[in-house]
Design a protein around this nucleic acid. Structure first.
Lengths: 187, 187
DNA sequence: AGAAAAATTTAACAAATGATAAAAAACGAT
DNA sequence: ATCGTTTTTTATCATTTGTTAAATTTTTCT
């Protein structure tokens, strides 16, 4: 998905401002398994996925929590770096070879403070992410793990072909073994 | 908490724009148990809590999911109405008699499109909510219900005095009876 | 193709949570 | 203050999920 379409999907910007914004992106590639965002660093850049898939996760004493999966058009971003200029709680790793669009947080903030159309695009960007985050919370609060698994499959039908079972389990808040058992019971 | 402080806590706005924004708020009161946001309606207004406490929840076939509690300074908002102009999934009820600041979504959007400082305030508002939503997701994914309960208490020490056990349980994703049992085991 | 590594399944038992019901305690309206 | 309502606790049993370990399947690398 090219950058023009990605930006428009979030919120259409008038042409002049959009060109100003697009011109600040740089295309980069990274291989599968590359960890592109680190929880212990203040990350200087934000990425949009042109091609590939990524996983956001937090590390804890007793393992990992997968927070989200990102596919084409989605963002690779350390929220705490982007919003608070602090090191965060998220790591992000690429689950496939990826083509990404990259822009610096500083450049974005500069544009936000000088161009009202870009500022409103940035507002819409945060708002869309907010809706997604709230829906993730509700879904994972609801029903049994079986129901949550089925709903995830319905919402992201291709995910299972692209992502290992253990990662999906950690997204659902259960163990990999439990998810395997659940799948056995569905068939 | 008065509106000036509430706005500044989200993001300091330059004085002239802040006055423009504050002037659009109206103070209203509603009694305990009033349902101020309905999931089946496109809500026209957004509220900030001057005094009191509120609960955001979704209704489902097999009961309710509490999404968040809001205290002084927090927002009472239908995200889907605010962001997408659609009816949503959230209901919000007041758990105490409340004093609120109210502004229309339309007026806010008008200000966003004409005043870059207010647009950036709106961006920061969404961003702060996004951080909170992500942290809620992570917390509720992590550890046992006991740990999540203790963490909630640590983060919102007064909540237990203000909110019934059943509501806290539905926030933690467990039943009220389970939470009662958990509390018995802690002591 | 074949060996090594990684991912998934299966199984058995333990621990946590759900469901239901009844008792006790706290709260509210008159 | 007291009666009626709501909330919380306690108890029992069923279900779900966790833990561990081993077997099986799939993937990766040469």
């Amino acid at each position: 998905m090219d950058i023009d379409k990605i930006l428009d999907k979030i919120y259409p910007i008038r042409t002049l401002s959009k060109l100003k914004l697009i011109e600040c992106f740089k295309e980069v590639r990274h291989p599968k398994n590359h960890v592109i965002i680190h929880s212990d660093k203040v990350e200087k850049d934000v990425y949009f996925i042109k091609k590939g898939i990524a996983r956001t996760f937090s590390d804890f004493l007793d393992g990992e929590v997968t927070i989200a999966f990102g596919e084409e058009g989605d963002t690779i971003i350390s929220l705490k770096s982007y919003i608070l200029n602090q090191s965060g709680y998220e790591n992000i790793e690429l689950l496939e070879d990826c083509e990404l669009y990259k822009i610096s947080v500083a450049k974005l903030q500069d544009l936000f403070s000088t161009d009202i159309h870009i500022a409103n695009w940035g507002r819409k960007f945060a708002e869309q992410e907010l809706i997604k985050a709230e829906q993730r919370f509700i879904s994972n609060q609801l029903g049994t793990a079986t129901e949550r698994y089925l709903e995830l499959l319905k919402k992201h039908p291709t995910l299972l072909q692209r992502v290992s079972l253990g990662l999906i389990a950690s997204y659902l808040g259960i163990t990999q073994v439990s998810l395997s058992r659940i799948r056995a019971n569905i068939k």
